[in-house]
Simulated scan of single mutants.
Amino acid sequence: MLLKFAIKDFHDDVKYRNLSPKTISGYLMTLNEFQEYAFNNELVNVEDIRTGTIRSYLLYCREERGNNPTTTNSKLHTLKVFFNYLEREEVIQSAKLNPIRGIMFAKEDIQIQTFNENHIKQILNYYRRSKDKYSSFSAYRNYCMVIFFLGSGARLGEAVNLRWNDVDLVNGVLVLYGKKREQSSIPVTDKLIKELAEYKVFCEQHFKESSDYVFVTDENKKLAVDTVKTIFKRLKRDMNFKDVRCSPHTFRHTFAKNYLMNGGDALSLQKMLRHKQLAMTQRYVNLFGTELRKLNDQYNPLQHMDI
């Protein structure tokens, strides 16, 4: 079977299974890149693909395209999903003939960057000054969006999909739609509720009507993920931080780090971050363990026992 036809059949299958558009887009981006790599090496049929082909492709991604281990592992995951699908559909006749067998994920050097208090003050002052000087809706929206990321630990996709109907300003609860479109509710602080309530009133006065979505464009339409990425690219340029990546996900890391440093535990943080596995949350505990020393000194049971 032609590899490009197999990719088309796979595309139809994931659409039928109602996977999220973001997941499908990510799959296709990798598979189309892999198909082009195979074609350039005169490999056009599924049967032509060997384990060595896949390893060579992953090395090409790392050495020629500059992909880090996290990115190449993501691509390997996509290829595993694809070739296992072909095995189930009997395009590949047996597990022994599946070229993905035996290929291990690369070891990742996990580095989690976070904002410090000075970074956050600079960012908020940047938008606060813009708001005061220009009375700009976009500056105030971005200001509130930064506070939202910092106070909720939300993912970018969760932020842009947030509707006012999902915000309980009375009881201080947010309903978020995360990965795989799963719904979760989390409590939020009075500070964040107050900011969102004031921002809501501002939006209603600015647009003379209510909006379905919390974070909207100047035309009162839902913000796109790419638009928020552009906002943060501009923020990165203007802030010119040398020691930290300026992105929405850095605020998620910052939320997690400060949650732990202020006395939170891994289990409750797991619920706040909506991680399926505790091991995901445990990374923060492992990485920030030295910074948790003072909390350990404060809460360690030995400190309070006469032994």
Rank of each mutant, 00 (worst) to 15 (best):
Asn84Ser: 04
Gln93Tyr: 08
Met104Ala: 12
Leu86Ser: 10
Ala95Val: 08
Tyr85Trp: 12
Ala95Pro: 00
Glu117Ala: 13
Ile92Thr: 04
Val81Asp: 06
Asp109Ala: 06
Glu90Leu: 11
Lys107Pro: 02
Phe115Ile: 08
Leu97Pro: 06
Asn98Pro: 02
Ile103Gly: 02
Asp109Asn: 13
Val81Cys: 03
Leu97Lys: 14
Glu90Ile: 06
Asp109Lys: 08
Glu117Met: 10
Ala106Tyr: 08
Gln111Asp: 10
Ile103Gln: 07
Glu90Asn: 10
Asn98Phe: 00
Ser94Cys: 00
Gln113Lys: 15
Phe83Asn: 00
Ala106Leu: 07
Ile110Asp: 11
Ile112Asp: 03
Ile103Val: 06
Val91Ile: 15
Val91Pro: 00
Pro99Ser: 08
Gln113Leu: 14
Tyr85Ile: 05
Ile100Glu: 04
Thr114Phe: 10
Leu79Met: 03
Ile110Met: 06
Arg101Ser: 13
Glu117Trp: 05
Ile110Arg: 13
Lys80Gly: 02
Ala106Trp: 01
Lys96Gln: 11
Leu86Cys: 11
Ala106Val: 08
Glu87Cys: 00
Pro99Ala: 07
Thr114Pro: 00
Glu117Thr: 14
Glu89Trp: 11
Gln113Met: 15
Phe105Leu: 11
Lys80His: 09
Ser94Asp: 11
Asn98Ile: 04
Leu97Ala: 12
Arg88Met: 10
Glu117Ser: 14
Lys96Pro: 00
Val81Gln: 01
Ile103Arg: 03
Gly102Val: 06
Arg88Pro: 01
Leu86Trp: 05
Gln93His: 05
Gln93Ser: 14
Arg88Phe: 12
Val91Phe: 10
Leu97Ser: 10
Phe115Lys: 02
Ile103Trp: 05
Ile112Lys: 12
Ala95Leu: 05
Phe115His: 05
Glu117Val: 12
Glu117Lys: 14
Lys107Gln: 12
Ser94Trp: 01
Thr114Ser: 08
Phe105Cys: 00
Asn84Pro: 08
Leu97Asp: 13
Ile100Ala: 04
Arg101Asp: 06
Ser94Lys: 00
Lys96Tyr: 07
Asn84Arg: 14
Val81Thr: 13
Arg101Phe: 03
Asn118Cys: 04
Glu108Ala: 08
Gln113Ser: 14
Arg101Cys: 08
Glu117Asn: 13
Asn98His: 03
Phe83Ile: 07
Val91Lys: 09
Ile112His: 03
Met104Lys: 13
Gln93Glu: 14
Met104Leu: 09
Lys107Phe: 02
Glu90Phe: 09
Leu79Phe: 04
Gln113Ile: 12
Arg88Trp: 10
Asp109Phe: 05
Ile110Asn: 06
Arg88Thr: 12
Phe82Met: 03
Ile112Trp: 01
Lys80Ala: 04
Asn84Cys: 02
Leu79Asp: 00
Lys96Ala: 13
Met104His: 09
Leu79Tyr: 02
Asn116Gln: 07
Asp109Glu: 15
Phe82Pro: 03
Glu89Asn: 12
Pro99Lys: 02
Asn84Glu: 11
Ala95Phe: 01
Val91Arg: 09
Asn98Ser: 06
Phe82Cys: 09
Ala95Thr: 11
Val91Asp: 05
Arg88Ala: 13
Glu117Cys: 07
Ile103Ser: 03
Gln111Glu: 15
Phe105Ala: 10
Phe115Glu: 01
Ile103Tyr: 04
Phe115Val: 10
Asn116Tyr: 11
Glu90Ser: 10
Glu90Lys: 15
Gln93Cys: 08
Gln113Arg: 15
